[in-house]
Design a protein around this nucleic acid. Structure first.
Lengths: 142, 142
DNA sequence: CAAAAATATAACGTTAACGTTAATGTTATA
DNA sequence: TATAACATTAACGTTAACGTTATATTTTTG
């Protein structure tokens, strides 16, 4: 039983059924297999991909378009790894690889930017919390 | 000349005039002073606040509602600091302070969650980049 | 002070990301 | 096997976050 129906997927990912169909509609996930009657049948990997999407969306505040870019990069890598190993230097494939590398570098730089700013924000919040708690403390001792 | 018209503010913050008016409309910023004829006149602080909003929105992917909460917290703190110091223990103000403290704790926890997940993502990206570059390297030596 | 440039309000338009409802067909279960 | 419980498509609805356009004032400038 390694085929899941849409409601199972919904429960596993926290998305609604509508959202899952919508993600398929805009090409964020590829159309899954179908039963004789037309019911969508998902695999465990499909669920993994969706979990990744949820995480990235929630955590990074990426738009679905940005997510599409990001996931494409990842998948291109994983799917074509073998293929890449045996292409001639200076070939089309090499240029592809260089594209991927550049894309990755951009994403990493962006992430670093965000992380830095988040750290600054956290510091600010920590300081505020400290001050508030100091006030609460001070008053307790009156 | 410490009063700015909306176009100056737009240029200073990178927002459009429409967006600035919209932020006022939904209460994200307070209505600025007006000229005799009704033209909005902003102060340097107004501009600062807007710059903060832009930063938070871009970096954190917060919705405007979340931003509202966050900025309110910050402002409440800064505006009422003096006032808080001299309220009786167990008073209304004390409960307010406790609310603020709790709110801060929530925001901090949320931030920590996000930072953790971002770190994991970055690690993944770094690994991918490493593999791609290894491939590029390998082929150079053929 | 008259023309040009900027501002104001009001209202309708747009896009992303789904929610909701309806009509119909498919699967699971007593 | 009937019937309840789910799935499918299609289409219209909704909310956030602005964009665009129109019409009327204000402000600036030659």
């Amino acid at each position: 039983m390694d085929r899941f129906k849409i409601d199972d997927v919904a429960k596993a990912t926290g998305l609604t059924k509508r959202t899952i169909r919508y993600y398929e509609e805009i090409g964020l996930i590829k159309p899954p297999a179908r039963s004789e009657g037309g019911t969508r049948l998902y695999t465990a990997e499909d669920i993994e991909r969706l979990k990744n999407i949820v995480a990235a969306r929630e955590v990074l505040g990426f738009s679905l378009q940005e997510l599409q870019h990001f996931l494409a990069l990842k998948e291109t890598m994983e799917t074509h790894r073998a293929e890449y190993r045996h292409a001639a230097a200076g070939s089309e494939k090499r240029r592809e690889l260089e594209q991927i590398s550049a894309g990755l570098r951009r994403q990493i730089a962006m992430l670093e930017e965000k992380m830095k700013k988040m750290a600054m924000l956290k510091q600010e919040l920590d300081q505020m919390a400290e001050r508030v708690d100091a006030l609460l403390q001070e008053r307790r001792e009156e």
